[in-house]
């Protein structure tokens, strides 16, 4: 089992090399004559007004928070799904209650119009 994961680790390493190697090559091959204007951030030709790292709409955070919660639900569902034919009705109902709670949260989300972009 561990050998398989060792292969994956090597694969990840090679994947990173596949990203770094062309960049190194490009750095060697490409011309280098930067100017001040060329290196400025893109802003339709204007000089930048302010720092680009600005506060954002709170809805993006809400999406991220809800994503975490639903991702956790998925993590709970994965082992359940593969043993479903072994744990029978008891396991099915246990998960039914669990997902039912999630659905309550989901309905609340609907009712509050929490994810309506405007």
């Amino acid at each position: 089992m561990l050998t398989n994961y060792l292969y994956i680790l090597i694969f990840l390493g090679i994947g990173a090399v596949f990203g770094l190697l062309p960049m190194a090559l490009g750095y060697l091959v490409s011309p280098k004559n930067p100017t001040k204007e060329k290196l400025s951030a893109y802003e339709c030709g204007f000089p930048a007004f302010e720092d680009a790292r600005m506060p954002f709409d709170v809805r993006y955070y809400l999406v991220a928070i809800l994503f975490i919660l639903f991702d956790l639900e998925t993590a709970f569902l994965f082992p359940w799904a593969i043993v479903l034919n072994k744990i029978g009705w008891y396991g099915f109902l246990a998960m039914g209650l669990f997902v039912g709670l999630l659905v309550v949260g989901f309905i609340y989300e609907f009712r509050m119009r929490a994810l309506e972009w405007q």
Binding site: V58, I65, L66, L69, G105, F106, Y108, E109, A114
Partner: peptide, 14 residues
């Protein structure tokens, strides 16, 4: 707990 988190997040953000 997850349900409580969903409700809390929504009521704080919306």
């Amino acid at each position: 707990l997850l349900l409580a988190a969903i409700v809390a997040a929504i009521s704080l953000c919306v």
